[in-house]
Design a protein around this nucleic acid. Structure first.
Lengths: 269, 269
DNA sequence: CGCGTTGATACCGTGCGGGCATGGATCTGG
DNA sequence: CCAGATCCATGCCCGCACGGTATCAACGCG
């Protein structure tokens, strides 16, 4: 976090113009200033960003990487500022997170019908995330797969579901009708936060390419059917419950209202 | 992007300590400095972040929002710096993007077998994205659904697939066997980048809750089956081709190797 | 009502960002 | 092959913003 966004802007300008003079012109500063700032930036980072001659300016590998990251940082910062100003204007927003496979549409429909003035965001969680979006404020309500840390959260049970073993279709066990957990001894389980697995799609790609196996909830298995994957029931694996959760200190009536409507919708279904 | 990360750090410290003196202590600066910086920050943003009395410091709604955004910004910035240093150390990385429903596992397995020293990232694209990840450098190779702008890209055809209409199960047309495009006249099509649709899951949630309909490729429909959605063939809609693409100026042998291996894998299948 | 606590204000010094002038290297045209 | 143009780097100066110390003002508590 010890990064100077001004220097990053300067860097981006040079990276795009590939020319110190024109970049300086675009930034409305003098060219020598830019030279010095870029050099200082390189020293802070501890690596060169450009290879310069008097006739050309090219990016190093680190420079190319930073150029991409700069774009990402810019969008995150800009949307952040937008959200803050939105909040300052008093606009209300409710973010509903859900674990993969759980569906929230009915509750949202009921909620928007009652509170048309509230903007609703739906946040699809990563498969390895549990209660973190509620903890760090990214969401106010969550449809979560158990287990997760319920301390400080108000939760409501919303049914349970079994888990299936997910194997590549070429796996020796793929022909079986069902498994017991012991059958998976020695397999690489892709369950913890290994690699940089960002999404379920990536996880399934890894399984399909033979880099491991996994246990996935039934609803997820139903949604992600692929010819190169097989799902097998595991007879000695108890079903996992799902829960609707919200931080206890969310005193805003909106969250309470959402929980009420959601439980009512569930009772009807 | 006109944001001072130093001031943001200061803000986060006060927000967490809810106390200017102790926050200043944690930041190793004097308390009056902190008071002034926060006040200046509030003026830059144009809104109050704290309600202060001599006995308590509380966050305003805008302050709460900024507190969350600050966390997100911090993680983005930190991972960005890590990636840059990684690139500076000369570590190689190949990012393979793919449109929803397209599978890349075989090609990756073949590639890692030949280049075990190269780290591979798999980037699941958003459903409305086409060639942008290749343009802005987020990926070096892409399995893309047509149409996209092929200028400056080297592309290889990888088959084609039909698209299906996706409707909520409660829709009047849901009982039909098939549709023609004219049947969907007057329906709200969730195809452009409307709303803040960040993912397919969100799109399906919107369709299920009756806010519109959409046309989705067959492989996507096969992967995301839900009881509250129906998929119908559209008889007068031609199939869309898919293509493997890479920027022409990616002269690194890695990308060329990946394309060769991928096309070979496809020929075998 | 006096005292401790806590945030805000006043004032001052220093360092960093910015400007201008100029140097040194490289390419180009005659 | 040399003169000029181009372009990044360096040297030097200035102003302002950031940080520090001293102090004030408001509030709570015994």
């Amino acid at each position: 976090m010890d990064l100077d966004l001004r220097k990053l802007r300067y860097f981006s300008a040079v990276a795009e113009h590939r020319h110190f003079g024109r970049a300086a012109q675009a930034l409305f500063i003098a060219q020598p200033v830019l030279s010095r700032q870029i050099r200082a930036f390189e020293q802070e980072l501890g690596c060169a960003l450009f290879v310069r001659s008097t006739r050309s300016v090219e990016l190093t590998p680190a420079g190319r990487q930073l150029h991409e990251e700069a774009r990402r940082i810019a969008t995150v910062v800009d949307t952040a500022l937008g959200r803050v100003r939105e909040a300052a204007r008093g606009e209300q927003r409710l973010v509903v997170a859900f674990s993969p496979g759980l569906h929230v549409s009915e509750a949202i429909r009921a909620f928007t019908a009652r509170h048309p003035e509230v903007a609703i965001d739906v946040l699809p969680m990563r498969w390895w995330e549990r209660d973190t979006p509620l903890r760090d404020g990214r969401a106010q309500v969550g449809y979560l797969r158990c287990p997760f840390d319920e301390a400080g959260l108000r939760t409501v049970p919303i049914g349970e579901e079994t888990k299936l073993a997910c194997l590549p279709a070429t796996h020796p066990l793929a022909g079986r009708e069902s498994l017991v957990l012991a059958d998976l001894d020695g397999e690489r389980m892709l369950d913890a936060r290994t690699h940089h697995m960002s999404s379920l799609e990536v996880k399934f790609e890894l399984i399909a390419s033979g880099q491991g196996v996994s246990l996935v909830p039934k609803s997820v298995a139903a949604s992600y059917s692929r010819p190169d994957l097989v799902y097998l029931p595991v007879t000695d694996l108890p079903p996992v419950p799902n829960r609707l959760a919200a931080p206890q200190d969310e005193a805003t009536g909106l969250v309470a209202d959402f929980l009420d409507l959601a439980t009512e919708v569930l009772r009807q279904a």
